[in-house]
Amino acid sequence: MGKKELILQKLREMLPEGAVIQHDAYTSGVAFVARVPVSGIVEAAEVCDRGGAYLESMTGLDFEDTAEIVYHMNVYEPKSRFSLRVLFPHDEKIPTLSGIFSSAVWLEREVREFLGFDFLDHPDPRNLLLPEDADFHPLRKTFGKIAAYRKREEIYA
């Protein structure tokens, strides 16, 4: 029973039915995907932290109807990456994970400055890569040339 299975089991108990989808073939690079509501993200992160996972990367996605943040986490075991996905409207504030994972401080700063998703009581809300006084959010689809502004279900059927 590797650490990944332990975390998977705990997440299954914690989250509502059908929130955790397993990809055994590891095709898209993750062992399982857990859809987490905004309120439960801190709790889920604590489960992963206690389970020995580390926060590998945090990606913000900007869709027409909703915004999304994908937390990729990994354990020091073969083929054991998993991701937590949080959907929320564009202007809602998401609780910060910097209390649980120290790497989240910079990751959240980067998501905030590039996509404009705000975090509740983030310890250091300055810009990380962009100039201090930059108020634009480059990775928003509305910034600059719009290649395509899609709804979420057009991509994830």
């Binding site: 690079g29 590998e56 996605l61 990729h72 395509a148 991509i155």
Partner: peptide, 30 residues
């Protein structure tokens, strides 16, 4: 095809990964 891929590989400095989200067009969505 539509969907996403998260591919990790070992660069000289550590784990590097490409997270590509595609909406079926020749340009990646993210």
């Amino acid at each position: 095809p539509k969907g996403e891929v998260y591919f990790a590989f070992e660069s000289a400095r550590g784990l590097t990964a490409y997270y590509l989200v595609s909406d079926g067009s020749p340009h990646p969505y993210r």
